[in-house]
Simulated scan of single mutants.
Amino acid sequence: MRRFAARSQTFTLPNKKAAYELTHIVFYLSEYGRVDPQVDDAIVDSLKFAGTLAFLDLNLDLLSEVCIALRFAGQMPPHIWEGWLRQQARQFTVFAQPEAGASDDYNQFLMVNWFMSVAGQGGFAQQIPEGRLMFLQPPAGSGPLRQLSESLYRLDGARSADWQAMRRAVGADLSDDAQLVLSAAEAAIDKFDRFFAGFARVGMRRCRP
Rank of each mutant, 00 (worst) to 15 (best):
F49V: 05
F49M: 13
F49T: 09
A50D: 13
G51W: 13
G51M: 08
G51I: 07
T52E: 08
T52Y: 14
L53H: 05
A54F: 14
A54K: 06
A54C: 13
A54W: 10
A54Q: 13
A54I: 11
F55Q: 02
F55V: 00
L56W: 06
L56A: 11
L56R: 12
D57H: 13
D57R: 10
D57I: 04
L58D: 07
L58M: 10
N59K: 07
L60D: 03
L60T: 13
L60H: 05
L60P: 00
D61P: 00
L62R: 13
L63H: 08
L63D: 02
S64P: 10
S64M: 15
S64G: 11
E65L: 10
E65N: 02
V66S: 09
V66L: 06
C67M: 09
I68T: 05
I68A: 02
I68S: 00
I68W: 12
I68E: 10
I68N: 02
I68M: 09
A69N: 08
A69L: 08
A69R: 05
L70N: 07
L70Y: 14
R71Q: 15
R71F: 11
R71E: 15
R71C: 06
F72E: 03
F72V: 00
F72M: 01
F72I: 00
A73Q: 10
A73H: 12
A73W: 06
G74N: 06
G74E: 03
G74W: 04
Q75E: 13
Q75S: 05
M76T: 08
M76I: 04
M76A: 13
M76N: 09
P77V: 03
P77H: 12
P77D: 12
H79F: 11
H79Q: 14
I80E: 13
I80L: 07
I80R: 07
I80M: 05
I80D: 04
W81E: 01
W81T: 00
W81L: 01
W81A: 00
W81N: 02
W81P: 00
G83I: 03
G83K: 05
G83N: 06
W84N: 00
W84K: 01
W84F: 02
L85C: 05
L85V: 03
R86W: 03
Q87I: 02
Q87C: 10
Q87A: 10
Q87E: 11
Q87V: 01
Q88I: 14
Q88K: 15
A89S: 12
A89I: 02
R90H: 04
Q91V: 01
Q91F: 08
F92P: 00
T93A: 09
V94C: 09
V94R: 04
V94T: 08
F95M: 06
F95V: 08
F95N: 07
F95T: 07
F95K: 11
A96P: 00
A96W: 04
A96D: 09
A96T: 12
